[in-house]
Amino acid sequence: MSKAFLIDTTRCTACRGCQLACKEWYELPANKTKQVGTHQNPPDLNANNYKLVRFNEHLDGETITWNFFPDQCRHCIEPPCQGAADTVEEGAVIKDEATGAVIFTDKMAQFSTEDLDYVRESCPYDIPRWDAKTKRPAKCVMCIDRVREGMLPACVLACPTGTMNFGERSEMLALAKERLAKVKKDHPNAMLADQEDVSVIYLLAEAPERYHTKAVAQAPARNTRKQLFASVRSSLTSVSKS
């Protein structure tokens, strides 16, 4: 049975406990950042931030909405990145059967810049990043080291509000359903983002683009999301299934 996250954005206060807990657990160095007129910092995911809280604000008439989106790898059920990486070298991206964690291996250090870009472009959520110098791949690994020991991922443990949840996929789906029903009372357009395709399910109170341009899967121009998943599905190696 694989694991899943439920990220209930309707509870998030953007305290960034998750963003920092992730950085601290993996002892990732700090980036030099600047204030450019937003609280979202660093501006984007990068080799030193596997997790980033995105801030998006809206004014509709006199109503202010401030949406927070703790962005991270979705650990896709059938990861397009794995398909893409396999075309370069099999096994460069692995999927842990027990947890469903999608993990980049150091084989990717051998990838050319074009190969890496190809892997990044395959991601419908634009998650993968690398350290430009070392080509060290960087993204959320589901705290597989912790999870295998029966511990919660660092970001989930740190979350004060119940935004970050983690457990068996079936439990998370049930919780997601329950929370969605409740949120829908006030927010009829509330939704679960791509719940069938990913292990990191976001509960959104309103249209995904009001959170982040890639809150739901964004297919490359030529493909629909379904086509995208279909196209990579065929290229999956038996490794992940073994």
Binding site: L20, A30, K32, T33, Q35, V36, H39
Partner: peptide
């Protein structure tokens, strides 16, 4: 603490778009 400075690196002033327009100031 570098990790905290990364998240909030510099002094800012929060203001409304109306005031910004009045003063000819753009975000950032």
């Amino acid at each position: 603490v570098p990790n905290l400075l990364e998240a909030e690196p510099q002094l800012y002033v929060e203001m409304s778009p109306e005031l910004a327009e009045e003063k000819g100031i753009a975000n950032g």
